[in-house]
Design a protein around this nucleic acid. Structure first.
Lengths: 136, 136
DNA sequence: ATTTGACCTGGAGTGCACTCCAGCTCTTAC
DNA sequence: GTAAGAGCTGGAGTGCACTCCAGGTCAAAT
């Protein structure tokens, strides 16, 4: 089973242009072509695209994805360690990022609570609010 | 107590250029100036900068931060509701983002485990690895 | 008095990750 | 056999969020 570029785009959630762009910059190996010169993506290609979208979701910069991508082609024995290392380091960064976001959610919670208090008082007293506002 | 732009930069974690940039685009009110025309930041200014960095951390686009920033200056009564709404919506997005990242961490965990298995086998059999690799 | 260093302004430049375009070819349906 | 539609290429353009720069002012230290 193979897929046209349009199908690959739909299934991967990337745009057709992005697919070609990723190929240009060496993030994906050029897929096979059909008789008319059109790209044909395999399930394996799609699996790699899926993994790339996961890495992208986590904010991994393209140049790092490219390093990883290119290690795939130098052979397992020589690069498995390095690839694992990249993922382990990146996972640590993602975990930090999650912690940062959780801290930010707490700040948002606090601010939102503050506004709720303001709104509860608003119908009654308007002058007070400047003070409440300042304290937030 | 007031702070020079260099001090404000250090304390907020933003660069001097970014501080001036934020002012230009209306994210922060122009701070007071000293006799020589230099910016002097108050603790209140710094508190706002801190909150901005929290919003930035969560990936809020600058145009939304600006909408929020500008609502601060139209008065509490008229904008508290809208501001709360912005924060509530944004908090929902941040929570979604956290979930996405957690899903990605799981994918990373899986891949990393796979590499660990490969590495355990590597010293013994090299030919096997291509197969193991495929399966990942 | 002059040198040093921080700060000022308006505007240009940068890096990233796409996204769009013109002009072309190739297949498919009528 | 021709018209429509999908895909092709190389290259230009976009939006975001800064970041840097030239040329100037101002205040404190020597």
């Amino acid at each position: 089973m193979t897929y046209s570029i349009a199908q690959a785009a739909t299934r991967s959630g990337l745009s057709i242009d992005t697919l070609r762009y990723y190929e240009r910059i060496g993030l994906v190996e050029p897929p096979a072509r059909d008789a008319g010169g059109r790209r044909t993506y395999t399930d394996e290609d799609l699996a790699w695209l899926y993994f790339l979208t996961r890495l992208r979701t986590t904010g991994m910069p393209i140049r790092m994805m490219r390093e990883y991508a290119q290690l795939r082609h130098v052979g397992v024995a020589t690069s498995a360690r390095r690839r694992r290392q990249i993922l382990v380091e990146h996972r640590a960064e993602v975990r930090e990022r999650i912690a940062e976001l959780q801290a930010s959610v707490e700040v948002l919670d606090y601010k939102i609570q503050n506004y709720e208090e303001i709104e509860r008082r608003l119908p009654r007293v308007a002058a007070e609010n400047a003070l409440i506002e300042e304290a937030s």
